[in-house]
Computed example of a mutant assay.
Amino acid sequence: MKKGLAAALLTTAVMGASIITPGMVLANSTMTTSVTEMPEDLFIGITVEAASQKAGFPVKQPSYVPEGFHLGNTSYAGKFGLVSLSYVSFQKGMFHLQVRKGSLQNEAATFTQKTELQLVKGKAISGKKKDTGENQVLVWEDAGIIYQLTGGLAVEELAKIANSVGIGTPPPGPEIISMESSGALTREQASEKIGFPIKVPTNLPQGMKLSIVVLPGKESEMVFLHNKVISDEIPSLSIMIRKGDLKTEAYGRVPEPDRVQETTLGSATAYVGMFPGTSAHNPKLTERMGLTFEAGPGEIYTIMSELPLEDIKKIAESLQ
């Protein structure tokens, strides 16, 4: 696996988790695909503490993140000694903090465009790299450890995040529910957190396996399901579950509310909007379609995928 692909895979796991919920991979899908399981040294959906232990050095986190962002996934790619923290906002996209051993001098040679700037911690380099596209990059060194911020944020905002790394208390991250610790109660635990029984789809693309993670919300918890199997032949898919009002959630979670369109799901009203997103299946992808609907009174589901709308609706209709 190439280093750039590893970074792409970390991006794909927007809402990381550490378990596969039993019964989520079904055979009634009409789609066919060959599956590439994750390499043994690629760990997605682990805690920052676990990633630090695997990497062999403490991973420092920012105490400041822009409003609306939260830590969605922590990963470790052993082949590259690379820890990646992915911060997600459904309105603003995502940014990543990658940490590995290295030197700023060597990193400077990897930039296609670069500018030196001064952080509280010392010298840093900002600009662009070949493997980060149009995203802005900010790199600095801390005692032989390279920290790299990548995302669609302004340099000034990246610098503000960088200056907070290792200082103060990091904002709360996802609560990862582990199969090892919770066994058959995993789905029940997540349901208890959110306040109603979680429904999962029985119709998924062949080879897709879903994982679950609980994230803190301002008013209530949110549960996310995402595809755990990493393959360039399997489309990306995430399901966001929370309490709320259907129309408010449909228009309030997307960066461009004017693009939201009303549709139907069976005999019920649903809404289609576009969410920021990437995919190992389609490296050029910058946004994914999201179908928002009510699975029960006040029980809001959004299925986000690069699949066609009709396929997303079939997945929605298979929730049990």
Results as ranks from 00 to 15, higher is better:
10 L>N: 12
12 T>M: 09
13 A>H: 12
13 A>N: 15
13 A>I: 09
17 A>W: 05
19 I>W: 05
20 I>H: 11
20 I>L: 07
29 S>M: 03
31 M>I: 10
35 V>C: 08
35 V>H: 00
36 T>E: 10
46 I>N: 06
52 S>K: 03
59 V>R: 00
67 E>Y: 00
69 F>T: 11
73 N>Y: 10
85 L>E: 07
90 F>C: 08
92 K>L: 11
95 F>I: 02
96 H>S: 11
97 L>W: 00
101 K>D: 09
101 K>R: 15
102 G>E: 02
103 S>A: 03
106 N>E: 14
107 E>K: 03
107 E>D: 10
109 A>E: 13
110 T>L: 14
113 Q>E: 15
115 T>S: 14
116 E>P: 07
117 L>F: 07
117 L>E: 12
121 K>Q: 15
121 K>L: 06
132 T>K: 08
135 N>C: 09
137 V>W: 10
137 V>Y: 06
139 V>P: 07
141 E>F: 10
143 A>V: 14
148 Q>M: 13
148 Q>I: 02
150 T>W: 09
151 G>C: 08
152 G>Y: 03
154 A>D: 15
158 L>C: 15
159 A>N: 05
163 N>E: 08
164 S>H: 12
166 G>D: 05
167 I>S: 15
170 P>R: 12
172 P>W: 00
177 I>K: 11
178 S>W: 05
185 L>S: 14
191 S>C: 11
191 S>I: 06
192 E>Q: 14
193 K>S: 06
201 P>T: 02
202 T>V: 05
205 P>A: 01
207 G>L: 04
208 M>C: 06
214 V>D: 01
219 E>Y: 10
222 M>D: 05
228 K>L: 06
229 V>W: 02
247 K>R: 14
253 R>M: 12
255 P>T: 01
255 P>K: 03
262 E>S: 08
264 T>E: 06
267 S>E: 15
273 G>C: 01
274 M>N: 13
275 F>N: 01
276 P>W: 07
282 N>A: 09
282 N>S: 11
283 P>I: 01
285 L>Q: 14
288 R>K: 15
295 A>V: 00
296 G>D: 13
296 G>P: 08
300 I>P: 01
301 Y>M: 09
305 S>D: 04
308 P>W: 07
309 L>M: 01
310 E>G: 05
312 I>Y: 03
312 I>M: 07
316 A>S: 01
317 E>Q: 14
